[in-house]
Nucleic acid binder design. Structure first.
Length: 423
RNA sequence: GGAGGAAUGGCAGAGUGGUCGAAUGCGGCGGUCUUGAAAACCGUUGUCCGCGCGAGUGGACCGGGGGUUCGAAUCCCUCUUCCUCCGCCA
């Protein structure tokens, strides 16, 4: 979330920039500022009464020690009055603080100045395109049919044992998954990212820290018995490692990578674009996360984009990089680049990575800070993350684009990992 | 799952109702000394929210939340986590 201080100091800018994000309640900004005014005044009054009470309590202690019991009791009577008064102020102060936070949490991150205006995908800006479009033979088929034909993916089995959107990979299909995961992790660690293997379930505090809670609750599987959430992305456990942490400026940047399965309910997305691996409830993803100094975060974002681009290039997939417009940008992001690869049989662009700079928005929720060597006060760090990469759609594109009448060619970089070059 | 014990500042560790944000040690930072370093000595060293032009100053925080009390690190309730033992188990 944005800090209250920032909102107070930049009211007009905040309102103006949030327009690009289609923020629907600009009046909330003024409500926040006036509620904060109230909060401050309540705090002044509360603190004053508390100071008085503290002073009297000390006096009582001293009087009792001296044995002046009567005098002590007299002072005690005075405290009763203050306590009653204080109770009201404390309650109101607490209410104001809580309401303020509830309102702050509803304000999305400000988009970066370069973010184009727009309401939907159609307004996203294509930054770069690359790779070569494949020429498929006449009888080319989409990946869900290839998966069945070559016994790589069994969608029906997944339905049987769990439900729709939980495919079973088998044989060379399973091995291809493992190869991609290992390949991505190797490339990421080679680029200086420390490999992590985090928990797949997180608590509420973690969900709040990265911005999934309280609003996007419906997107996550909730383990009600223990009040835990299955992660929709390893961004949550990895970034939350640094929750409530004050780093030294010299510790920055921190670069982590993690492979995890991801779980998404995808409520309300039935119908279009859900065939095969295009949209599933459980999938594998390798993520990269950076904790950055604010002055370096946009360079880091470019670096991450270049890194992810190289992965896609190495796999030989036609791709494009788009910058999300204001309306398509997520609640917490300031700037996001999406990677899409072309799946030639279904003739569709599939999103395989989303690389974002959250600036200090998550950091403020997380209380993730760093300190400059000579500075007393810690500053909020910047957080960034991106998929490197999400597997199912990569697999879909590889299967579809590399199919020949004789079988499917495995990208060369994967051969050491798969142990086979043809399916 | 059952029975006990514990949680204090960066770390270790005192503190069981009163001027305690908290002894002491270590670590960190600054200084003295030294050609330099070490040692020794001296000083300093948490976070957050306010008020004040400023020098300053008020409040909160001893795992989280609630309670008792004029006053809580200290007493009570509750949750979480860790340790020991028993049971179960990959």
């Amino acid at each position: 979330m944005l800090t209250i201080q920032f909102i107070r100091d930049n009211r007009d800018t905040v309102i103006e920039r949030l327009k690009i994000k289609n923020f629907k309640q600009p009046e909330l900004i003024d409500r926040i500022i006036s509620r904060d005014d109230e909060r401050r005044s309540l705090q002044v009054q509360t603190n004053g009464l508390q100071a008085e009470l503290n002073q009297l309590s000390k006096e009582i202690g001293i009087l009792f020690k001296k044995g002046e019991k009567d005098k002590a009791n007299e002072v005690k009577n005075r405290t009763t009055v203050i306590k009653n008064e204080l109770e009201t102020f404390e309650r109101e102060l607490q209410e104001a603080t809580e309401e303020l936070k509830e309102m702050l949490v509803q304000v999305p991150n400000l988009p970066h100045p370069s973010v184009p205006e727009g309401n939907s995908e159609a307004d996203n800006r294509i930054i770069r395109e690359g790779g070569i479009m494949p020429n498929l033979h006449e009888n080319a088929i989409p990946h869900w049919e290839l998966g069945t034909k070559y016994n790589l993916i069994d969608f029906d089995l997944g339905v049987k044992i769990t439900g729709g959107g939980f495919p079973v990979f088998r044989g060379k299909g399973a091995k291809l998954q493992r190869a991609l995961i290992t390949y991505f992790l190797d490339q990421n660690t080679g680029a200086g990212y420390e490999e992590l293997l985090p928990p797949l379930m997180v608590n509420e505090a973690s969900g709040f820290g990265t911005g999934q809670l309280p609003d996007k609750e419906g997107q996550m599987y909730h383990v009600t018995g223990d009040n835990l959430y299955l992660i929709p992305t390893s961004e949550i456990p990895v970034t939350n490692i640094y929750r409530d942490v004050i780093l030294k400026a010299a510790d920055l940047p921190i670069k982590n990578t993690a492979y995890t399965p991801c779980f998404r309910r995808e409520a309300g997305s039935y119908g279009k674009d859900v065939r095969g691996l295009n949209r599933v409830h459980q999938f594998d993803k390798v993520e990269i996360v950076q904790i950055q100094h604010p002055s370096a975060s946009y360079n880091a974002l470019e670096e991450m984009v270049n890194h992810v681009e190289q992965l896609v290039i190495n796999l030989g997939l036609p791709y494009r990089i788009v910058q999300l417009c204001g309306g398509d940008l997520s609640f917490t992001s300031a700037l996001t680049y999406d990677f899409e690869v072309y799946a030639a049989a279904q003739k569709k662009w599939l999103e395989v990575s989303s690389v974002s700079n959250f600036e200090s928005y998550q950091a403020n929720r997380l209380k993730l800070r760093y300190r400059e060597p000579e500075e007393k006060r810690p500053q909020l760090a910047h957080t960034l993350n991106g998929s490197a990469l999400a597997l199912p759609r990569i697999v879909a594109a590889i299967l579809e684009n590399n199919q020949t009448p004789e079988g499917i060619m495995v990208p060369e970089v994967l051969h050491p990992y798969t142990g086979f070059d043809f399916i």
